[in-house]
């Protein structure tokens, strides 16, 4: 199973699309590793320096409809090769969400008020998330603050994460 714990990159906007996650001009690459320098290159967010701010981060926390747009699995891959295996958001676009679990990664939804709370308390600070996969629990930490937040994913998504992805799951079953 992949690592779902580490330092957080906050992206405070809804509807961040796949072209912003990994621009189409890099889709001619035929290895995942080659995508690494281009993650979030076209995302214009105040105070975000894509190449620099991604460094050392393992988790993205963002708002609604993350990953809308194209079907490109290059979006999860660009995250994966940068060591980011977990995105926490209010909601996701369907294909992006499915692609994440298909790769054995996690796209976890939390209620809007919880996301708002996380942004209010932890946004802009150096923040860590520890994921307890067995208990479906995130422990969010920053200096002087610590909170436990429970999440839920379906049994099927859980099985995909455990199996390492959908190909492994499907090939053994169908």
């Amino acid at each position: 199973m992949k690592n779902f714990s580490g330092k957080v990159l906050f992206l405070d906007r809804s509807d961040i699309n796949t072209d912003e996650i990994i621009p189409a001009r890099y889709l001619t690459e035929i290895s995942k590793e080659a995508l690494k320098p281009y993650l979030l290159e076209d995302l214009n967010l105040e105070e975000l320096i894509p190449g620099q701010d991604v460094d050392g981060k393992s988790i993205i926390i963002t708002r609604a409809n993350f990953g809308c747009g194209s079907s490109r699995e290059h979006a999860p891959w660009a995250l994966e090769v940068n060591g980011i295996n977990l995105v926490i958001a209010e909601s996701f676009a369907r294909i992006f969400r499915q692609n994440m679990f298909n790769c054995g990664m996690m796209a976890v939804e939390l209620p809007p008020e919880t996301i708002e709370h996380i942004f209010t308390v932890f946004g802009g600070r150096e923040t860590f998330v520890e994921t307890d996969f067995k208990e479906s629990k995130f422990t969010i930490k920053t200096q002087g603050k610590k909170e436990d937040i429970f999440y839920s994913i379906s049994d099927f998504d859980r099985a995909l994460v455990k199996a390492g992805g959908w190909l492994e799951y499907a090939d053994s079953k169908y």
Binding site: F96, W166, Y174
Partner: peptide, 19 residues
């Protein structure tokens, strides 16, 4: 529309998963 892993499974097994 689906991603590459779904496509791999589609090509290999002729199935796809949906909600």
């Amino acid at each position: 529309g689906i991603g590459t892993t779904d496509l791999e499974v589609g090509i290999l097994k002729g199935v796809c998963v949906f909600h």
